[in-house]
Amino acid sequence: MKYGLPLLQALVEHFRKLPGVGEKTARRLAFAVLDMEDGEVRNFAETLLQVKEKIGFCNRCGNLAESDICSICADRSRTEGVLCVVERPADIYVLEGSGQYRGRYHVLHGVLSPLDGIGPEDLNIESLRERVAVEGIREIIIATNPSVEGDTTSLYISRMLKDSDVKLTRPARGIPLGSSLEFVDRGTISKALEGREPI
């Protein structure tokens, strides 16, 4: 849609590029920006710039961080010696949401996938070996996604660390809480039956 307003058009196109935003939503967002107070818009723009400028990766675990070390690595109340390996920083927020895990993390930034040209050298995987030695790690939970690539990456890590005496685990897969058997897909049911537990 043309408005005879190239600036507004540019703003709409910027919003359009964001995930989950279509033409109509992008237009609504652009008009909302027009309605904002000057100060608020300035603040918004400044935040966008700073996010890019100041947020980098944690030197230790690869999580998002506003300084050299992320807030989780810096938190002294965290359980020492336990790591949870995840594919992406976003996965950390999911695990943190449970409130149950109190150890620290290690972010791979992807999984092994020759089809996408990704090998171990493209991932934050070698530093895991160093961390095990330096930080005295006792247990590593490998929480990569349950896909062929995620499982293979987990196998790769377990082989890489087979000479250390770290306990390696993988989260269980099975029937989601609060759901009923009726609605669980067949593949999940069979995995859940494989991983059944004594009562």
Partner: peptide, 17 residues
């Protein structure tokens, strides 16, 4: 060496499935 370690992982996956 790195490639061999990768093959090890893919072989284990292939053998399982």
């Amino acid at each position: 060496r790195s490639r061999r370690a990768q093959l090890d992982a893919w072989d284990a996956m292939l053998a399982e499935k």
